[in-house]
Amino acid sequence: MKGSLSQLMWELRGLLRFPILEAYVAILTLASCWHAMTGGIRIGLSSQVFLREIFESSLVRACACAALYGSLTWGILNATLVSSAAAIVFARECEGGYLRYSLSLPLSRGCLFGVKFLAMSALLVLAHLISMLFSLLASCPSYAPSSIVFILRNFPLFFAGFLASLAVPTAIATLVAVVSRNSIVTLVSTMLLDHAIRTISLLLAASNPTISLLGSGAALAAAAMTVKPDSPAALLFEQMTYRSLALSMALASPMIVAAYSYFSRVLEVT
């Protein structure tokens, strides 16, 4: 127990000294990812509202929605790839010196990976919080004032939903970490599971606002639902959707290059 605690403290200290460039890449990546997802939500929701107005046939509406959700999923997958690259960069950093050093000490694998994962989760939570704020600030003008009031009023719910959305993949990935004993598998699993669950919850959020309350997109979905289809806010909504997607792509490309170049360098070193 004492060893685990000492290991956790050491790990967190290490994270605080995590090189600023890597932290910047990780946070921007997640910000981009979050931005792409909120953009995706807006595509899904505003278009569904729009399609409801146009198509009376539920079949046609379902087909149109499926196509739109396809593009939404593509955006999320793209973001997943970028964030997975950042995760791999981090994992390689850990894998190189950290694991060899740690496994040469009297420390069990379970303890090491459990602690490593806790620390990684702490980093993910921090990065998600920062990226979420970044995303909210960046897209604030796209929300109707009533939506912003809604978000602020329901912030505890919003935050609880966010933590809940991290808790499930973190728990699953902790198991993966202990079983696989491989930091790359662990981190990529974390990201993939995280995004898989988010994707499902976003799709649910887009299709059914009641179910969406259980998912991570609860507050954003609810906020989007408060916008009336024919209001000026809805038009702005759609414009911002495309802008946010373009911004996500613009942010993602250099980050892929930076992550790849760093990834190659770390590979050579280790």
Binding site: F18, G97, R100, S104, P106, L107
Partner: peptide, 25 residues
Amino acid sequence: HEGERVSLMRRVGIVHENPSFPLWA
């Protein structure tokens, strides 16, 4: 055996090939 490995690491030192360490430490 994980438990025995931990005990063993108190009595064994390891020199890895091409050593590398956390860069910040």
